Amino acid sequence: MQYTGVLKKMNTEITDKVQYYLDMKTDFININQLLNKEIELRFVTYECLNCHLEKEIYRQGFCKSCFFDIPTAGDWIMHPELSKAHLDIEDRDLEYEKKVQLQPHVVYLANSSDVKVGVTRKSQIPTRWIDQGAHEAIEIVEVPNRYLAGITEVALKDHVSDKTNWRTMLKNDIKDENLVEWREKLHEFIPAEAEEYYIANNSETNINFPVFQYPKKPKSLNLVKEEMYKGKLVGIKGQYLIFEDDTVFNIRSNEGLVIELITQ
């Protein structure tokens, strides 16, 4: 079978083991069904996820002109503390920013390579945790807008990491942590503006990924440079495809690439 389409992050469904789906325009592929099979990836060209023109991807699946213009790539996306829609102040498109920023957001702890703090819209749980390859996670606060979540994350990352070590996550070189204890330990550092939104009585969410073999020394595939890769798919974790020879391919960081995916 041969599929052609522009890469976007895989859709996920949390079941006993996470189910992964890749939207290839004319086909919707359950990637789990390709596990333990040989697959071939070929780079074809680029397609910006916004303007859909054949332009080199700059960041987040967008060409350079779109990245610096569209509201979906504003600085507040990566830095929630910069959100200003609650003040009725526009960054690039106030209507869009109000729609996204003025909705419930969650500050959480996730354990993927080590315990880290993060922010996401409530509607993106547990998707966000799955995308980060977290095998366990817990909510700390649920606030009514992105700004409050952002300043809470900034305060907490003085006491816990806000980064994921992708190599450690993929090697599964991790340990279980008591996230309830972590949440309680970090409670005192929550800013006064968000204190009333602290969640005191919840439990961890556990996530199982479909991986038959973890890589010992993960090697990241640069499909644009290599143009073609073929290997046996042995696992999926986070947004990574894991192959038998320790090659890993991050779907999320390659959004906007038009590829051919060939299976036997």
Rank of each mutant, 00 (worst) to 15 (best):
M1I: 12
M1S: 15
Q2G: 09
Y3N: 10
Y3R: 01
T4N: 10
G5N: 03
L7R: 04
K8A: 05
K9Y: 07
K9A: 03
M10V: 08
M10R: 03
N11T: 09
I14N: 09
T15P: 00
Q19V: 13
Y21Q: 12
D23K: 15
M24S: 03
M24R: 04
K25S: 15
T26P: 00
F28C: 09
N30Q: 12
I39T: 09
I39N: 06
L41T: 09
L41I: 12
R42A: 14
R42Q: 15
V44W: 04
V44K: 15
V44H: 04
Y46N: 07
N50F: 15
C51L: 03
H52I: 05
H52T: 09
E56Q: 14
I57K: 11
R59E: 14
F62K: 11
C63M: 09
C63S: 12
C63P: 05
C63W: 04
S65M: 09
F68K: 13
I70R: 05
P71S: 05
D75H: 15
W76E: 11
W76N: 04
W76F: 14
I77W: 03
M78V: 05
E81L: 14
S83T: 09
S83W: 04
S83A: 15
K84S: 10
A85P: 01
L87Q: 11
R92T: 09
D93W: 06
L94I: 15
Y96D: 11
Y96V: 07
E97R: 10
V100Q: 10
V100M: 15
Q101K: 04
Q101I: 02
L102H: 09
Q103I: 10
P104F: 01
P104M: 08
H105W: 12
H105R: 10
V107D: 05
V107F: 03
S112Y: 00
S113Q: 04
D114K: 15
V115F: 00
K116G: 02
K116A: 10
V117G: 07
R121D: 12
K122C: 02
Q124P: 07
P126K: 03
R128C: 09
G133D: 01
A137V: 07
I140C: 06
E142C: 14
T152D: 04
V154F: 11
V154C: 08
K157I: 07
K157E: 12
D158M: 12
S161V: 07
T164V: 13
W166P: 01
L170F: 00
K171M: 05
N172Y: 07
I174P: 02
D176F: 13
N178A: 04
E181M: 06
W182Q: 05
K185C: 04
L186T: 07
H187I: 12
E188M: 08
F189V: 06
P191M: 02
A192I: 15
A194H: 02
E195W: 11
N201Q: 08
N201Y: 14
N202G: 06
N206R: 14
I207H: 01
N208G: 00
N208K: 14
F209T: 04
F209G: 01
F209Y: 03
P210T: 07
P210N: 06
P210Q: 07
V211Y: 00
V211A: 01
F212Q: 08
Y214R: 08
K217D: 14
K217S: 13
V224T: 15
K225M: 13
K230M: 14
K232A: 07
L241M: 10
I242R: 00
F243E: 06
F243T: 01
T247H: 05
V248Q: 05
I251Q: 07
R252E: 02
S253C: 05
S253F: 00
